[in-house]
């Protein structure tokens, strides 16, 4: 019954690593016309996780789309990961996903089982999120791709933007880093099976629990850590808030064993793109090993939420998260803007 096709062999890039770099994207989009609408609460200009449109005084629509080439060989797991990743953008806005549409590219090598596996993975993950998939669009392509366009709702007064970090906020991260390095090592057959299992488990875990807990606290800003890596996404958060983000690298949760893989040079191309984008705004203070720095730029697929919470609530948020998400950790804080950098990385 299971399909023998190894999906990752059919694609050049994997997962969010296929995302066009942040700097390149900004250049590509420059000069395109944009329209404004007073009801468009979050739009094009802040590169947020999703757009938000006000429907009434107490209801706003959240919309997002995300899809990518296979990051794992198993079709069902690929479907689960792609769906968890796409839905995550709604959670990152503080919203609740409700409806979704499949976005799919089918390659000639994919048999019926493989296509079914991907879609079933997506359907079941969406169901777990309380989201209904109502249709979609499938085209033929050389490489397989899958994802979702997701719609959800949020209260217009409780939108969590990615660019509102306030000096004094504490940064909390809800998933471990190292997905890009793990999948790169897996391509080389050098990823420990237990590491790989944990990476897959983490990628297909919804950010729903983290979102549901987070909305009970005074959160200034939130984003999900995906293709741009922790520092790429931190940079967006810092710049928009007119603040400087301090990352304490010693407190960051990493998947077990990724540090030695990073030291060995098993780094995805996306890591270098992210470094290129964020490095000039980043200052390293003290001794931070190169492999750790690399991991801070490592592109994540279906990564965790990066939550900037008021200091008074930081401890309560962390303990509430830890009950359900053992690897949640405080990874830094937000300072008043420094002249020379938007991000500081400390040991």
């Amino acid at each position: 019954m299971a399909s023998d096709i190894q999906l990752t062999k059919l694609a050049e890039c994997a997962g969010c690593g296929a995302k066009v770099g942040a700097g390149v994207l900004a250049q590509l989009l420059e000069g395109l016309p944009t329209r404004t609408d007073p009801k468009l609460l979050v739009g094009y200009d802040t590169s947020d996780d999703a757009s938000v449109y006000q429907l009434s005084d107490d209801l706003a629509l959240v919309q997002t789309v995300d899809f990518f080439p296979p990051i794992v060989d198993d079709p069902y797991l690929f479907g689960q990961i792609a769906a968890a990743n796409a839905i995550s953008d709604v959670y990152a806005m503080g919203g609740e996903p409700k409806l979704a549409l499949n976005v799919m590219c089918v390659s000639p090598q994919m048999d019926r089982e493989a296509v079914h596996g991907v879609l079933r993975g997506g359907y079941e993950k969406a169901y777990e999120a309380g989201t209904i998939i109502t249709g979609g669009h499938t085209i033929q392509d050389k490489e397989p791709k899958y994802g979702l366009a997701v719609s959800g709702f949020v209260h217009p007064g409780r939108i969590l933007r990615n660019d509102r970090a306030r000096p004094g906020d504490v940064l909390t991260l809800t998933k471990a880093l190292g997905i890009g390095v793990t999948t790169t090592a897996a391509k080389a057959g050098l990823a420990d099976p237990e590491l790989y299992r944990q990476a897959v488990e983490q990628m297909r875990t919804l950010n729903k629990t983290a979102r549901d807990i987070m909305v009970n606290f005074d959160v200034g800003s939130c984003t999900d850590v995906t293709g741009f890596g922790l520092l790429g996404h931190s940079l967006e958060m810092a710049r928009g808030g007119g603040a400087t983000v301090v990352i304490e690298s010693g407190n960051i949760p990493f998947l077990p064993g990724v540090r030695s893989l990073a030291e060995m040079g098993l780094l995805p191309e996306g890591m270098y793109r992210n470094r290129h984008f964020a490095e000039s705004s980043t200052k390293v203070e003290g001794e931070v090993p190169l492999a750790i720095q690399d991991l801070l730029y490592d592109p994540q697929t279906s990564g965790g939420l990066l939550i900037a919470v008021a200091e008074k609530d930081a401890q309560a948020l962390l303990s509430a998260l830890r009950d359900r998400i053992p690897c949640a950790a405080q990874v830094g804080y937000v300072e008043a803007r420094r002249e020379d950098c938007s991000i500081v990385v400390k040991p």
Binding site: A176, P253, F254, P256, G257, S260, P326, C327
Partner: peptide, 12 residues
């Protein structure tokens, strides 16, 4: 070869 690194988080 270096000793295996300790697991930082997400306990196995």
């Amino acid at each position: 070869a270096p000793a295996p690194e300790p697991v930082a988080c997400c306990p196995t």
